[in-house]
Amino acid sequence: MTPSLGPAKRAGSGSGSPASAAGRWSDLDRPPLNAAALRRALLRPGSLWTSLDVVPSVDSTNSDLARRAPDLPEGAVLVAEEQTAGRGRLDRTWSAPARSGIFVSVLLKPAVPVQRLAWLPLLTGVAAATALARAAGVDTALKWPNDLLVHVGKGADKEERKAGGILAERAAEHGVVVGLGLNVTLRADELPVPTAGSLALADAVCTDRDPLLRAVLRSLEEWYRRWTAADGDPAASGLQEAYAAGCATLGRTVRAELPGDRALTGEAVAVDGDGRLVVATADGGREAVGAGDIVHLRPAG
């Protein structure tokens, strides 16, 4: 689920101010982001983040940031109040009402071995889950390879719902664009599918998108610096251990639908050093599958 910026809708420093948004508000529970305050908080000397744009609407933040990547340094951040063509892995669609979520993409240029780039979406998941636990008071789990899960409901009726997703894409030789889409204030009658959720439906203590976005970007910077300092090594950076600890997929029996109408069923037992899911099958074998090989990953049965 990516976010993207529209070329003719670039917003300046006042793009997040209530005055500039006047006339566009239809829901006072969903005020626009304060771009100037976000810049003051995040664009500091020595920070990973080098620019931050908030735009009213865009097709996909990932697509737009990728188009502009040749002219941008590492650390460019693009946030949209609304995505008209948000997408996730395998070009699946992602939709949500304007200002109901966080739709953000960042441009990263990690100097790590190319085979370790597969860890970027997993790293982003760890960073987001860590930030949301602190800032929103929501226990966020990770579904391999790129989903954020929350619990919605009470007691025995509580169920796991997808509240967010991550998409990492190469921008040719100009780096990697990583997008995060997160449902924040989405109400039950606004859910695109019954399996979707939001921070509000998970009883978050905070649904103010400004502090949530700051928390996510600060956590992402922390994990990214740790990972790149270890030359992208997921074990040495602690990333592999952190991902396994927060991954709801591990320990469950799953059915992986693969290209060519092939299916793999077994227990998800580990995430290996290349970021692949290791599945133990009934015949005693083990098979590692990469995110690019999976069409669908579902609980078996």
Rank of each mutant, 00 (worst) to 15 (best):
S95C: 10
R68A: 15
A245H: 00
V269M: 08
S219L: 01
V177C: 01
G137R: 07
L201H: 04
P145Q: 07
L117Q: 08
A111T: 15
V55P: 00
A202Y: 06
V77M: 10
A229R: 08
T207M: 04
E221W: 04
E267R: 15
G181C: 05
V55S: 10
L122R: 00
A85R: 14
A248R: 14
D231P: 01
L65N: 04
L5I: 15
A8T: 13
G285M: 08
G23Q: 08
E74I: 03
D59F: 09
A171H: 02
L28C: 04
T93D: 14
S26Y: 10
D139K: 07
R161A: 15
A21N: 11
R209A: 06
A291C: 11
L191Q: 06
L90C: 08
S17Q: 05
A204Q: 11
S237H: 00
Q83R: 04
A256Y: 05
D91C: 13
G14A: 06
P7S: 13
G155P: 12
K162R: 12
H296N: 09
D189A: 10
R67G: 11
T84I: 07
G86C: 06
A128G: 13
A235P: 01
E160Q: 14
A163P: 02
A35W: 03
L132G: 04
S100P: 06
P31D: 06
A35R: 03
Q240I: 00
A168D: 01
G273I: 00
L186N: 05
D210Q: 10
A35K: 03
V177E: 01
L38G: 03
